[in-house]
Each structure stands twice: as C-alpha cells, then as structure tokens.
C-alpha cells in the first residue's frame, strides 16, 4: 500500500502540502516574523517589505504572521470537527448496521430527522442557542454532519456483512471483534477516507464562513475566514489583505479535495498501480 502511495503523485503532493501547512501552523511562534496581535498604525496598509513580507492590514498587523497563526484555528478546528463527526457517525453507523433490529430503527429515524434540516440554518440555530463560541461552532458542525456518516457507514456495513468472507468468519466462530476490526472497518475505510478528506475541505469553508459572518472565531484571534471579514471593508483600497487569505483557503480546500480522490486510488487494492 505504501508503494502505491509513493507512486501516486497527486496523493504524495497533496498530503505533503497539507503536512507542510500543518507544520507551519505548529511552528508559527518560531517562524512568524512579527507578533500577530501587535498593531502598527503608522505602517497600516503597508506594501510587501522585508519587515512585513505580505504587507500589513487595516490595523498595521503583519499579514504573514496572522496567516501563520491562523493555520491553527483554521486547519485544527476543521480536523477536530471531522474527528468528532467520524467518531460519532462511525459509532452510530456500526451499531445500526451490525446489530440491526430496534437499535437500527431508532438510530436511522434520528438520522432521517437530522438529514431533513438545512445544515446552515441548523448551525446558526445551534450557535444562536449556545452562544457565539468556537466550541459551539465545532459542536454544531459535528451535530449536523454525523448523520451523513452514520448513514454511509451503515450502508457499508450492511453491504459487507452479507459478503461470503464475513459469512465464513461467522460460520467458523471468529470473534465478533476480529470481524469488526479486520474485515468491516478496513472495508469501509477507503470510502470513509475519501469522504472525510473531502469533508475536511467542507469544514474549513464552513468554519471560515462562520468566522466571516462573525459567528465563529472572534477578533482579534487570527483565522482565515475572520481575516477575510476584516478585509472586506478595504476591499478596493487594499485588495492584498483579502487576496492572501482567500487564495490560502482555496489552495488548502483544493488540496483536501484532490487528496480525497487520490486516497481512493491508493486504498483500493484492485487499482493496480501501473
């Protein structure tokens, strides 16, 4: 599998890009040229320079430093959201698909209800109810998204549990734990990896959107969506302030989307690498 991964240029490229961005975010305090919160009113809207490589924003803060510090909430919260979503969704999906009967009935009806809400409205409702806060944004995102995963995983489980190799395992008395961990989860992992890497992109956009609307990460914390929000007032006079976080979001989200496609090829053993 590792060999297939190395051969797939898109997979290597996108994973490397995401890793580099993540490392930049972790190392932000070391590599950032300036304090992201320090205002320098005299130098506001400064152009590219050695002191401020990407210029400064409307309060004279270093855009590059803010971008670097902004990776943590942007990427970190998105990954956290996905982990929560997959965790909850996988648990519910496996329960419903494997045990059937009344458990499945209850879980799937809840899922149906969840899926029939418009997701953005749901997020707004949750955030409005619980208060504007980063934790609540994550909670809201997990809350609206888990149902998709629960449904997908249940379908996967049902599809595979009737396969002959699982029937054989059950016939010769292989422990349920082994069937679940070695047969079922790897079988649905490929689909799961694709969907979740596509959805990290979705989560980034969603968190940025909420921050842009002022419902997510609050000023002055640097976050790419929040930076877009601050930049919208000076859109015509200082477009760089908007372009930089905008392009960064596009690149990161596209990287996750491409990674989803590439991972599918890597994880499917039938796709023999030529």
């Amino acid at each position: 599998m590792f060999r297939r991964f190395i051969k797939n240029k898109t997979a290597v490229g996108t994973v490397a890009l995401v890793l580099i961005i993540a490392i930049l975010g972790i190392l932000a305090p070391v590599i950032a040229p300036n304090d992201p919160y320090k205002t320098d009113i005299i130098n506001k809207f400064a152009s590219f320079s050695w002191q401020y490589p990407f210029g400064t924003d409307n309060l004279g803060r270093c855009i590059l430093s803010r971008m670097l510090y902004g990776i943590r909430p942007t990427l970190g919260l998105a990954v956290l959201t996905m982990l929560g979503t997959i965790g909850l969704g996988a648990l519910m999906g496996l329960l419903a698909g494997y045990f059937r009967g009344i458990i499945e009935e209850v879980i799937m009806r809840v899922v149906d209800v969840m899926l029939s809400f418009p997701s953005q409205v749901m997020v707004f409702a949750v955030v409005a109810l619980l208060g504007i806060n980063v934790q609540n944004v994550i909670l809201a995102n997990v809350f609206i998204k888990w149902a998709w995963y629960a449904r997908m995983i249940r379908t996967g489980v049902m599809q595979y549990r009737e396969r002959n190799f699982i029937q054989f395992s059950r016939c010769v008395g292989t422990p349920e734990r082994f069937i679940l961990i070695r047969h079922l989860i790897p079988s649905i992992a490929a689909d799961l990896a694709v969907l979740s890497s596509l959805d990290v992109g979705w989560a980034i956009i969603n968190i940025s959107t909420l921050s842009f609307l002022g419902l997510g990460v609050q000023a002055p914390t640097p976050e790419w969506g929040a930076m877009l929000n601050e930049a919208k007032n000076v859109l015509t006079s200082n477009p760089t302030q908007m372009i930089i976080p905008g392009i960064a979001i596009v690149i990161l989200v596209s990287a996750f989307n491409l990674m989803g496609d590439a991972l599918r090829d890597v994880l499917d053993p039938k796709e023999v690498a030529e």
Binding site: N164, Q167, S187
Partner: peptide, 20 residues
C-alpha cells in the same frame, strides 16, 4: 457447531476479503 463445521461458498470473488 462452529468448532466442527466449515464452509466453502459458490461465489469465490467475495469469499476472500479483497484486502487480505
């Protein structure tokens, strides 16, 4: 029964886990 019985199925394409 599980200790004494074993089984071979018709459809060999799904009889073995493709990831194994």
């Amino acid at each position: 029964l599980q200790k004494k019985l074993s089984v071979v199925f018709q459809d060999y394409t799904t009889s073995a886990n493709p990831r194994f």
